[in-house]
Amino acid sequence: MLIPHPLLGLRDSQEFTYLGDANLMHRPDPAAENAEAAFCEYVFLRDNPAGVHRELWFHEQGDRSWLVVTRDTTTHEILGAELASDVKLGAAQ
């Protein structure tokens, strides 16, 4: 598979380490009343969609960027890749 790195262009997926669901970027509020339940869900439960999936890939053998890659899990088609920090900072604004 080839991953369109937003800074480096198309890179072979072998250069990357896969983590999984991009929802891991949304760490629960540790001070919330239901923090333990929220963390349980955050740590242990994942959706496993057949279709479009946003997921985290680490360019470990490259520039060490974490990317949010949008991939169709049924065809492996990659619909986009963004820097995770951009995604996170964009969401915060």
């Binding site: 983590l19 970027m25 985290l56 680490f58 974490w66």
Partner: peptide, 18 residues
């Protein structure tokens, strides 16, 4: 060594980029 660095980068870039 590699795993901890990867985890630190994860928190740095994906969770607390600010």
């Amino acid at each position: 060594a590699g795993l901890v660095y990867r985890q630190m980068e994860f928190f740095h870039q994906c969770v607390w980029p600010e």
